[in-house]
Design a binder for these strands. Structure first.
Lengths: 209, 209
DNA sequence: AACTATATGTGATATATTTCACAACATGGA
DNA sequence: TCCATGTTGTGAAATATATCACATATAGTT
């Protein structure tokens, strides 16, 4: 079996953060730390940290705290699934290019293997270190390269169409930057990053305080 | 008084979505709709929609549903605060430029009034329709232009420094694209968009299904 | 004018998530 | 060796969020 208890979504989000913070600490020579120290870095409480670590079954020592290396490896064991994550990006506009260039400095274990667009000026070129193909080759490249995650950076009007093709190509996770909710069958996970929405939310909560 | 009951954060997020969907519907000539129709578009349930609208005190008619125009105006009344939202963006790299160009087609009520960087090649130029200033002019421009929201698109190492200057310049809301949590005093609202984290989360949830 | 069918609005309930509070426990020092 | 200290791990309580279930309302029909 893969996992015994379903780990809460929020916990997973924090886990990603913990992992990055811990890797950073390790590179600075920190070998051990307490829940309240990690909490200070992650900007939450020590109870939350301990509860999260409990979720993944990690334990530390009451007086020494947590072993950084061991904790990183435990968290990675949870986050890094069984199969490799290989990503396709569709829509090589400004945002698409920005994301490509951001990931050129190969993020740990996350590789954008191919980009797709319908604009002939972009097709068959290497853009920010990533080869750009025409959408007509989408299905064949996805299966050829074993791609299982997708990023959508096309305009809203085309987002659902692209999502449908991703689903048909057996992509299991989609990160959607278009400002529309996508309809996908169960078993496909979608996350949306909506910059305009975030700004509106920001404006709302910045007002009160 | 501004608001009587604190509206749940999640409700606000959905409200932003509703508003956009409704504006789109209105432009297509839809005058009235039922909660289950909005729910279908927003990808949630009719109960959720009704509960959300209850939150802002909007009511409809059992047989006609909700009046689109009236609903848009009610939601806007909640979301659009008293003062105008004027935004500064710091860090004119790939991501920063992508965001600038995205907002050039002036999103409703959200204007990026100025961009800032320390790179002399970018300073004093107009980039994607937005004037770019040197960071040394940050404080003066913020107050001169009445900017109250900030977007951080600098590398992780400088993010906290930029946030500190934003806070000092009395910016009340910060949208942070750098992969580090920011420490800010109470009263300042921070939201983080972390693309790498989102991909990791995606990878995790795409695995199970 | 009364009836019917279909939505709304919302108290009550269920679920998810966070926080509290404290017993159990290691470690360094007396 | 035993104690004092400060941390872990976690049941229980609190809070936040979503869903259920149904009484209430209203427009069209007869």
């Amino acid at each position: 079996m893969k996992k015994t208890t379903p780990i809460p979504a929020r916990t997973i989000e924090r886990m990603v953060l913990y992992k990055r913070l811990l890797i950073d600490l390790k590179s600075k020579g920190v070998h051990t730390l307490f829940s309240h120290q990690l909490a200070a870095l992650a900007h939450n409480t020590s109870t939350q940290v301990r509860r999260d670590l409990m979720e993944i079954g990690h334990s530390g020592s009451p007086r020494k705290g947590y072993d950084v290396t061991e904790l990183i490896s435990n968290i990675s064991g949870i986050l890094d699934g069984s199969k490799e994550r290989i990503i396709a990006l569709v829509g090589v506009g400004n945002l698409g290019r920005a994301i490509l260039s951001y990931f050129t400095y190969s993020h740990p274990g996350l590789t954008i293997a191919a980009a797709f667009d319908t604009d002939e000026n972009k097709v068959d070129r290497v853009i920010s270190g990533c080869r750009c193909f025409h959408m007509s080759q989408f299905e064949s490249k996805i299966s050829e390269m074993n791609i299982n995650l997708g990023i959508i950076t096309v305009p809203a009007a085309q987002a659902q169409y692209v999502a449908d093709r991703m689903v048909a190509a057996e992509i299991r996770g989609i990160l959607n930057f278009a400002p529309v909710p996508l309809k996908v069958p169960g078993g496909v996970f979608v996350d949306r990053i909506d910059i305009a929405s975030s700004l509106e939310k920001l404006a709302y909560f910045a007002d009160l305080s």
